[in-house]
């Protein structure tokens, strides 16, 4: 464990807490893409299948449980909570995310570390996570001005993978046989997808203006 990875995990946790706060405090999920939440639930379920077979550390196991439970709770809340689900932007959240799932699955079958069930699921989860934010970014562009908590949620979610890239660079230089180009390339693509969001987020912070993504 290094400071970059720990900071990345904490940033990821903060993004989920901010989202939970937004939904709980405003009893609304307007501006939140349910499709991105469903993709993330799939990412965690596919990536953490080893939660019962591979014990790495208490921290690792607890974080996996927190990520799976919180994301499933958010999806349930956006689908089932009679108050929250009314504020879901159903007509704006129209990204065809099934294509993302299919593409990630095909790519995982072609490019993986080992042709085993678990490794292919892991590669699938890595590729899917890279594109999981797309429905959310499209929804932000369509829904005009973005409320603060939603903006912070997306910001922290994008920042966490950027910190992981620093973690991989650090491990590359400090661990002899460290090579994980699948996660690295995918992590770079994932972080790059946030580039324009980060730009407009920085502008809104600098000009102390409301965050607004151009349509």
């Amino acid at each position: 464990m290094n400071i970059f990875r720990f900071a990345g995990d904490m940033t990821h946790l903060i993004s989920i807490l901010v989202l939970l706060l937004k939904i709980y405090a405003t009893k609304s999920c307007s501006g939140i893409s349910r499709k991105t939440q469903e993709l993330y639930a799939l990412v965690f379920l596919a990536r953490y299948v080893d939660i019962f077979t591979e014990f790495i550390s208490v921290y690792n196991t607890i974080m996996k449980i927190v990520f799976i439970a919180s994301t499933l709770a958010i999806v349930w809340c956006m689908r089932g909570h009679r108050v929250v689900r009314r504020s879901y932007d159903k007509e704006l959240d129209t990204f065809r995310h099934y294509f993302l799932i299919a593409a990630s699955l095909v790519l995982a079958l072609l490019v993986h570390e080992k042709f085993t069930f678990q490794e292919i699921l892991w590669a699938f989860s890595i590729y899917l996570e890279a594109v999981a934010i797309l429905p959310q970014l499209v929804l932000l562009q369509r829904s005009g001005n973005v409320d603060n908590l939603t903006g912070q949620y997306v910001f922290f979610l994008g920042a966490y993978r950027g910190l992981y890239i620093l973690n991989w660079i650090y491990r590359y230089f400090t661990e002899p046989h460290f090579s994980r180009w699948i996660a690295c390339v995918s992590g770079l693509v994932q972080t790059a997808l946030y580039a324009d969001f980060f730009y407009y987020y920085f502008l809104s912070w600098k000009n102390n203006a409301k965050l607004k993504l151009p349509a």
């Binding site: 990875r5 995990d9 591979e54 790495i56 996996k64 990520f67 973690n167 460290f178 994980r180």
Partner: peptide
């Protein structure tokens, strides 16, 4: 063989 340490990440 020890599992690749890589899967120790979230």
């Amino acid at each position: 063989k020890k599992k690749t340490s890589f899967k120790d990440e979230l």
